[in-house]
Nucleic acid binder design. Structure first.
Lengths: 214, 214
DNA sequence: ATTAGTTATAGTCACTTTGACTAGAACTAA
DNA sequence: TTAGTTCTAGTCAAAGTGACTATAACTAAT
């Protein structure tokens, strides 16, 4: 499951979107589903997730993490399927490059319905995890480019948490995190005072399965 | 992976222990390993975890949650193995009933070394998750019986976080959580003022894979 | 019966964090 | 030059936290 920021159709403010692929065979032929594919013998779980991501959407994520292993008995009507689901965050520049076609399209993550299999529940759970991680850790920056303004960070938080935040208080909190670095640059071109640009210097935590990989 | 509270050999204060099983065949024959087994076609992931737990140790956990899916290429020297690991908390009364034998024995979770496969790394990760969950959510109570004193809760925190906590401040925090209910009972038999007994009224969150199960 | 020892429990105090709010700074567009 | 907008720095009260003190309530020893 891939999360990316895109401007809302109406307000133009950033919202959370995910790409889905259309099922071209049974079961659930014609319905939209999460991209995915089989695990081969020669690749780790994370490598398989990366590869499937690239093959179906052409995306290379800046953040990739295991979400959950789903293995209920009746997930697919035809056979027993165990899905080890990963979720990714991609930066806007990346997301813009994603292949879009008749069978691959972006949707707003909070307005999905009628997906194949149990994919609606999976998206729900991923959104819940995203909100949790956001409230605690430093993950919002993987949805932005290398340089960003504090207002952009706030918009990410507002999009994910679905509520407005006080600009002054939010700024105070972000500036207290040591991983955010001030740059000398300013974003020009707005119709107002130009905001300072910042940079994220932290590294995402390694997945436990990859810790001992050389 | 099963966590339970047991008194330390030296200090007698509660510490975290897990049961391990001895490998009776190659690879890693003779080494200690986490209990586990195959997933059959007719059971969900959680059911399989429960069953394997019961079959190897005789335990029925009061708390069971998916930990992580491990699928690195070289986890086993003989074949490719993907392990979907669950972790459980059991109450002391339960833990005392566990089968112990030549090939099943309890170990201190923080003093393990030389386990089979990548099981050392898995235990490390589980302990990290346990500490995290403990600091935030209400999970410590699943390691205790139905009734407990606030000092017992504090000892659980101290065992998992591996540091001492101020009794007065800890008490203030716990009493602020609405899920902890005062009972009229007191624990008798100590050589000092008898502490009040409390009860935990919260329910553990459902695993996402089981949400739609009837 | 009294006292010492131990833990339970309540409370104080300084310090930090948080949410609501005010105000000035710095830019663009009219 | 002025109005409009956002950026940015503050203030202030409320709530939470860590260190600490003091009293309550029991048991065991004298």
């Amino acid at each position: 499951m891939i999360f990316a920021l895109r401007p809302s159709e109406r307000s133009g403010r950033p919202t959370i979107w995910i790409p889905l692929v259309r099922r071209i065979r049974e079961p659930f032929k014609g319905l939209w589903a999460l991209p995915g594919g089989p695990l081969t013998h020669a690749e780790s779980l994370q490598d398989a997730a990366s590869r499937n991501l690239r093959e179906t959407t052409g995306l290379a994520p800046s953040y990739l993490e295991q979400l959950y292993a789903f293995g209920g008995l009746h997930r697919s009507p035809t056979q027993r399927v165990v899905s080890i689901v990963y979720w990714a965050l991609v930066q806007p520049t990346e997301a813009a490059l994603a292949d879009e076609s008749e069978n691959v399209r972006w949707f707003r993550a909070d307005r999905l319905d009628g997906l194949a299999f149990d994919h609606n529940a999976i998206v729900e759970y991923a959104l819940w995890r995203l909100r949790n991680k956001m409230a605690y850790g430093s993950i919002a920056y993987h949805l932005l480019g290398e340089y960003f303004t504090l207002a952009q960070v706030r918009e990410v938080y507002e999009a994910v948490l679905d509520r407005e935040l006080d600009p002054a208080n939010f700024r105070r909190q972000i500036k207290a995190t040591p991983e955010i670095e001030e740059t000398g640059e300013y974003l020009q071109g707005g119709k107002h005072r130009p905001p300072r640009l910042y940079r994220f210097t932290g590294r995402p935590g390694l997945d436990p399965d990859n810790r001992s990989t050389p």
